[in-house]
Design a binder for these strands. Sequence first.
DNA 1: GCCGATTTGTCCGTATGTATC
DNA 2: CGATACATACGGACAAATCGG
Lengths: 242, 242
Amino acid sequence: MPKARYQDIYNTIKDRIEEQTYPFGQLLPSENELKTEFDCSRNTVRRAIAGLIDIGYVQAMQGKGVRCIFEPENTVSFFSNEIETFREASIRNHLTYETTVVHFEECTVDKELAEKSGFPEGEDVYYIQRVHVIDGKPLIFNHNYFLKSVAEGLTGEIAGVSIYDYLENTLGVRIINSKRVITVEKITALDKKYLNLSTRDYNCLAVITSTTYDGDGTLFEYTQSRHLPSYFSFSTNAVRKK
Amino acid sequence: MPKARYQDIYNTIKDRIEEQTYPFGQLLPSENELKTEFDCSRNTVRRAIAGLIDIGYVQAMQGKGVRCIFEPENTVSFFSNEIETFREASIRNHLTYETTVVHFEECTVDKELAEKSGFPEGEDVYYIQRVHVIDGKPLIFNHNYFLKSVAEGLTGEIAGVSIYDYLENTLGVRIINSKRVITVEKITALDKKYLNLSTRDYNCLAVITSTTYDGDGTLFEYTQSRHLPSYFSFSTNAVRKK
DNA sequence: GCCGATTTGTCCGTATGTATC
DNA sequence: CGATACATACGGACAAATCGG
């Protein structure tokens, strides 16, 4: 729900790029032209463009202009710089999706979990295991831990739909940022069970471990998202610092 | 080489965070205090902080302050949002490193390479295979393709030191941005040969495929960087859009 | 090669809004 | 309610790179 002006402009230009109104390789209108079109200051246009640079949609070239380097993808891209729910990502990629909760438990943070997650020892958490099924194929196996004091009232049913919807829209939790680390790990028995893996196939998975903070600065989520390699891809854009 | 004021401030604060002058969990001085300390406008401070948010070092909480969420890592982190050379990353992680060029060739872009890289068919490129050795262990196997018209004069010797140094400091190429896709792929015979892999171990690698553009907007590099899973980790920070 | 117009990059000061305490 | 702190936005100024005449 963009409220800020620059977010609206960002989204408008982003849509135009995706629809190829601004085609690959060509220059966008100059900042001055965009500023006239959107009737705002040049700074506001620049903020919108900065966002598009972050996601690798355009590149800015001093003295020349801003060039579109977005190409419509044929592969499934699941993550970018934004925090996106599984549902949002599936919709963006035009895929059917389904989530199955295979485990739901309330438990207390022990030393081991505290160590790897950063949760304080002794806190109560919800521990959920979910399988995400895309186009009929089980592709992702998730271990989710949510701090009970923040995610109060979470149930297996809610987890089957969308936990973030519940947190944001029902509980009013404001999600700020999520630190993510991507690694490759050996397959476990649980992975084998829920992702239908044969032994002759890949013996490891792409794992995204994320720790997420709310508006109070409280770490309230620790998640391990284990992805089948053949369908995993993670895109980022890097910029050379001057 | 930061020339911009906000980059200096960014680096100064970044150093303080890494040295834990601003410790994990605590608030940084307010923007107004920092603006006084660095004797600049609040906007400039904000740009520096925005950069620290991007790399997941801090989180900004409206009405409260900016909180440090950086924890010194024990694992080797190789990439963030910045374009970094292998040498720069090794130094940042306090590791000994070495690069071996195992193949160097000049060739022409055929249909297949054009397809996957985005290079125009028929262009001349340098094709290099390199092994990166860290702390005595061969961890990364790279396939690099550089457009000859941009990287003119590249040799195997240069590739053994630093290609980016040559491009930036000798040829004056200005590197802008690099689109990266992370996937997990099966091991090939070449991987096995150069990374000393036993068959009972991982049967796949973490692969970073990057396409890099220069200041003219020319795609001049296509690289596949194949990483041993046990030493691979890629960190990013995601922000929830409003 | 120079000059001026265009375009992006950096920076400042100020004003107002919103959230926290 | 007021003080503090971050968020958004505007307008102006100058620098640096590019391009065409």
